[in-house]
Simulated scan of single mutants.
Amino acid sequence: MSAPVDPLPALHEAPAVVRPGPVLVASDGTAVSHDALFGAARLAASTFGTSIEILGVCEPITGVAGGMDVLPIPAELDEARRSTMQADLRRSVSIADTGDPTWPITVLTGSPARTLASEAALRDASLIVMGIGRHNPLDRLFGTETTLATLRESRVPVLAVGTNFPVTPQHAVVGLDFSAASVQAARMAMQMLAGGGRLTLVHVRPRFEHPSSDWQTWDAEYGRTLPPLFDQVRQALDAREDIIVETVTVRGDPAPALIAFAQQAHADLVAVGTQRHSLFERLVVGSVATRVLRTARCGVLAVPQSRGAASDI
């Protein structure tokens, strides 16, 4: 997070309105436990007053090289795999304590991340709920990486949860850089908290290492801008009376500092705003949201910048 951007577009625009469409649960039906995934979907649907739909995506099998030719895969094979995933998902919602067999289930064929993002936009979804694994390399390959790819493609907020995500989150930590996206992330996180919960707004300011007087002057001025900005965010959030809102400033690199604070505070949820990055930035630099999602030990809520918003992370 760099120096605070001009907060006026973020703080004085009308409060973000959650999309009216369903909460989409993305799964292939093979997770060891769907209880936390479906529980998070129930929480979101109750919070935003909407329904739940299950969406699975089968990645198509590419053709097999045979000499100089490419042998096409029979269409029946992709259809059989899609039917198998549909059956796995129906079984999952039936046996999970937090599932509901009446939830509609759709299985499509395509690139998982792009298909999830496009379907979420098509359905005007409120949120995409996805699983995230931490236990072994396969979890990181097939769980976390698909979630990361979806986050990069999606214009709809993404909630990534592990098996320990609580039914009623008590403490959410928000990475706040005073952009529109980060304020929207704070709003959504606050709405998902249980009564008596805490919302901690964390701003990560640059590490002070240079001894020059110019740097010291700039750093002092930077520090003076923060209290009024925090006050404006508090006013914009208009927090519920049963939610405690606190503000914290730490120094360091944005993602590691935010994650370290969240872990020390035993947070249930970390929320961040995101923006679209160029391909080079995604591959070489990455983003705060990407690094948080890779390392967080709690749920992660990533809220994309709204169309037309001027500020960024």
Score class of each variant (00 low, 15 high):
Ala149Gln: 13
Gly162Val: 01
Ala172Lys: 08
Leu141Arg: 10
Val161Ile: 09
Arg140Gly: 02
Pro157Asn: 13
Thr150Trp: 00
Pro166His: 01
Asp139Gln: 07
Val158His: 00
Met130Leu: 15
Ile132Asn: 03
Pro169Ile: 03
Glu145Pro: 07
His135Trp: 07
Arg134Val: 08
Thr150Ala: 12
His135Leu: 15
His171Leu: 11
Gly162Leu: 04
Ile132Ala: 07
Val161Asn: 13
Pro137Thr: 15
Ala172Phe: 07
Asn136Asp: 11
Ser154Gln: 09
Gly143Pro: 02
Val156Lys: 01
Arg155Cys: 06
Leu159Gly: 12
Gln170Glu: 08
Ala149Ile: 11
Gly131Asn: 07
Thr150Cys: 13
Gly133Arg: 04
Thr146Ser: 15
Phe142Ala: 00
Gln170Tyr: 14
Val129Asn: 03
Thr168Leu: 12
Thr147Ala: 05
Arg140Lys: 09
Gln170Trp: 13
Met130Thr: 13
His135Met: 14
Thr163Trp: 01
Met130Val: 15
Leu159Ser: 14
Ser154Cys: 08
Thr146Lys: 15
Ala149Val: 12
Asp139Trp: 03
Val129Thr: 07
Arg152Gln: 03
Pro166Gln: 01
Arg155Lys: 11
Ile132Gly: 03
Thr147Gly: 04
Thr144Val: 12
Leu148Cys: 04
Val167Ala: 11
Leu148Gly: 02
Val167Trp: 10
Ala160Asp: 14
Glu153Cys: 10
Gly133Tyr: 02
Pro166Thr: 00
Leu151Gln: 09
Ala149Arg: 14
Arg155Leu: 07
Gln170Val: 06
Ser154Lys: 02
Gly143Trp: 06
Thr150Phe: 03
Asp139Leu: 01
Pro166Arg: 00
Leu141Glu: 02
Arg134Asn: 14
Phe165Leu: 02
Pro137Ile: 15
Leu151Gly: 13
His171Ser: 07
Pro166Gly: 03
